[in-house]
């Protein structure tokens, strides 16, 4: 993708709404959305931080996740499945409280109409106990699944409190990728950015470059992640990385202010900066179409 195309894409992405995005790294026309039999879409929610308290940042912290669930349920067409890319709960030093929050989160998302739900942890869920409590409720922290010819790979870069993927998982990833055709469409789900987005704010993965190196030989790879509480789009070579909005509070753009402090609640525009996205996956075209939605009912 040349720089002009990239700028155009970022401009479109920054406006929200619908963005067509090719796994080949080329922007495609938003008009003429196809509906081939093997097309499908899924929803990405991220950074719900259940258990967070802080009226200045979100006076409806105990109700926003439920609103997001209602918003997804209100979509005219329901997705094939729903992914949560980490920080399901807000961190706590108390192991019992952590389990209570995970249990409550699980209860709330059970209200989703779509029952095919895929989750991964964020550092708030898993870094203080290496993912132990998370696994009790949701099972493995890294795994694969296939859907209509698309290979989904989840990467855990939070159970190690250092924010590393680690050698064992890198070996697993390498072995997994050996079984996948180089022309296949691959979607990677993870929590932290796999590239050095802004290490000054801990927006990086220590060994994320090793993951990207393993993915580079594959032509159609797209990464979806969370952690930074805002929409963000970036390329490493031909691989696009898309960060999702949070449904608890937004964070400032990387490096835009001195401190990584959450953006305060705006009473004139409640829930501003919060949301979820729909990802329309078109295996035949090897591309994705991203549609951003507010966290309140669609």
């Amino acid at each position: 993708m040349n720089e002009m195309d990239r700028r155009d894409f970022l401009k479109l992405a920054g406006m929200g709404g619908v963005v067509f995005f090719s796994g080949l790294g080329t922007l495609v026309d938003a008009i003429g959305k196809s509906a081939a039999a093997d097309d499908f879409f899924f929803v990405q929610l991220s950074d719900t931080h259940w258990g967070f308290e802080g009226a200045q940042l979100n006076p409806d912290a105990k109700g926003t996740l439920q609103k997001a669930v209602a918003a997804v349920n209100s979509l005219t067409n329901q997705p094939d499945f729903i992914v949560f890319t980490g920080d399901l709960t807000h961190t706590t030093d108390d192991p019992q409280e952590r389990r209570k929050r995970l249990r409550e989160f699980k209860d709330i998302i059970s209200q989703l109409k779509v029952k095919n739900i895929r989750l991964i942890p964020g550092e708030h869920d898993a870094s203080l106990d290496n993912g132990a409590a998370y696994k009790e409720f949701f099972g493995e922290t890294h795994y694969t699944f296939n859907h209509k010819g698309v290979h989904f790979i989840t990467i855990d870069n939070v159970s190690d409190p250092r924010g590393s993927v680690g050698e064992a998982q890198l070996v697993w990833l390498g072995d997994t990728l050996k079984k996948i055709d180089k022309n296949a469409q691959i979607v990677v789900l993870t929590h932290r950015p796999l590239f050095d987005l802004y290490p000054q704010w801990d927006w990086a993965t220590r060994d994320g470059d090793k993951v990207v190196t393993l993915l580079m030989p594959f032509k159609h790879v797209t990464v979806f992640y969370g952690h930074i509480h805002q929409e963000h789009n970036h390329f490493t070579g031909h691989i696009p990385h898309h960060a999702a909005k949070s449904s608890i509070y937004p964070l400032p753009a990387p490096g835009s202010v001195a401190k990584r402090a959450p953006i305060p609640w705006d009473p004139t525009a409640p829930y501003k900066g919060l949301g979820f996205r729909e990802i329309d996956t078109r295996p035949k075209q090897n591309d994705c179409v991203l549609t951003e939605y507010p966290v309140t009912k669609v």
């Binding site: 961190t91 706590t92 203080l128 409190p161 924010g163 000054q200 801990d202 990584r260």
Partner: peptide, 17 residues
Amino acid sequence: FAFHCDIVCGDGHEDMV
């Protein structure tokens, strides 16, 4: 130049700068 703790250490970790 800012420095920070980059090993998650608890509720308050993000303020360790």
